[in-house]
Structure formats: C-alpha cells, structure tokens
C-alpha cells in the first residue's frame, strides 16, 4: 500500500506552570491510503495532540510528519495552510460550522477558498450533502440543524476538496447513541468508498469498526 501519512518520532512538549509537560514522547505512525485508523486511549494520553500534529495544525517539538511525500515542517505557513485546505479534511467534536452560513455554504467554504468556481462548487456541495443524507437541508442554517445533521455537514465540508486523509477528533463525542451510530455508518461508508480516515475516539463502537486501532498511553503508542 502507498503510505499517505507518516509520523516519525513525534515529540511535543508544553511548558506549564514552570514545568515541561511531555504530551507526546516519540510517536511513529504510518497510515496507508484507504486505511481506517482509530486512535484510542484515556484522556491526556496525547491522542488529540497527535491528530493536531498529523494535520499540520500544530508543530512538533521534534520529529516530522509527511503527507503524500511532503514534509510538513518544510512548508511555510502559507503552504501549510494550502495543504490543509486541499489535502486534509477535518471533523471536530463540536462540528464548528459557521452559524451564519447555510449547510451548503458551509460545504462550499473550503472550495471557495481553493478557488473552485461558483457553479462547480454548488454542484459538488449538493453531491456531498446528498452523500451524507442532507440533500433536503442544504438551505438551512447551521443553527437550524440537529447535532447529527451538523456533524454530517462537517463531514461533507471535510470532503469538499477531495482530501488525501480525513482527520476526525471525537466525531461522536457530542452525539447521542443513535445519532452517533449514524455517523459511524457514514464513516464506514466513506472508508469503503476509498477515503482514508484517522479518527481519535473514546467510542468503543467506532474503534471496533475501524480497520486498525492505535492505543495510546502517556504520550506514546502502546501496541
């Protein structure tokens, strides 16, 4: 398989109250194209920090991340922003849609930023909303959607620019069991359709359905 995402000996230290907290203590990881990897572990084990480093949101204290052969630490802030826009998709626990925009406009946002023309991005946004089962809600504002619907819009937004990897941080954390199940099914379908997924979760069901589970403890991988 082609490696899509590679992490080499990632370390992340934070200063806190005059002391150094070692959030990550040398994590190495390889995610291949088409993988569905779940990162699990107790709170404070470094799962979210790892996801932030993999996504180029934060910079490691040491080590490197490579996405499709490009080292993230070699990129300028502008290049990294562009890479996040075009090669990565993000799904957050609390959805984080822009409340003043409709579902379709939220999905269009990354495409607009990438320079996709209006008619083309509207067609793509409608396709994605149809894919996540929200074709009828495209003109509803984010505030008019339920939690599950907002998360599905967020997934559609993450897919907008056909990313190499979708990174999700506790995507079912704010949802009830039934709605969480719908999101799990959607992730499974996404992966079957070829999307590479890396998901940080506390949800045992999600971990059980992922093709690969990475256990973390105290800033390191334990398996």
């Amino acid at each position: 398989m082609t490696p899509t995402l590679i992490a080499r000996d990632l370390r992340k230290d934070y200063p806190m109250n005059g002391e150094t907290v070692h959030a990550l203590r040398g994590v190495s990881l390889r995610v291949d194209s088409g993988d569905y990897a779940a990162i699990v572990g107790p709170s404070g084990s470094g799962k979210s920090t790892l996801l932030q480093l993999l996504g180029g949101i934060d910079t490691p204290t040491a080590g490197a991340v490579e996405l499709s052969g490009t080292r993230l630490d070699a990129l300028s802030d502008r290049e990294l922003t562009r890479l996040r826009l075009t090669r990565l998709g993000f799904v957050f626990q609390r959805f984080h849609l822009l409340p003043v925009l409709t579902a379709r406009e939220n999905v269009e946002l990354p495409m607009a930023e990438a320079g996709v023309r209006g008619p083309e991005r509207r067609v793509r946004a409608r396709e994605l909303l149809d894919y996540v089962g929200l074709a009828q809600r495209e003109n509803h504002r984010a505030t008019q959607l339920s939690g599950g619907e907002m998360q599905r819009v967020a997934i559609a937004r993450a897919l907008a620019n056909r990313p190499a990897v979708v990174l999700a941080d506790e995507p079912t954390g704010e949802l009830d069991a039934a709605t969480g199940r719908e999101i799990l099914d959607l992730f499974l379908r996404l992966n079957r359709d070829g999307t590479t997924l890396v998901v940080v979760t506390h949800d045992d069901r999600l971990a059980a359905e992922a093709g690969r589970v990475i256990h973390m403890l105290d800033g390191a991988i334990r398996d």
């Binding site: 922003t81 562009r82 890479l83 996040r84 826009l85 990565l88 998709g89 993000f90 930023e113």
Partner: peptide, 10 residues
C-alpha cells in the same frame, strides 16, 4: 481557529 485549521487564509 477552525477556519485556519481547514485551510482558510488569514
């Protein structure tokens, strides 16, 4: 922050 994460420019 979210906009920056998803690649929206400053």
């Amino acid at each position: 922050a979210v906009m920056r994460f998803v690649g929206v420019r400053r």
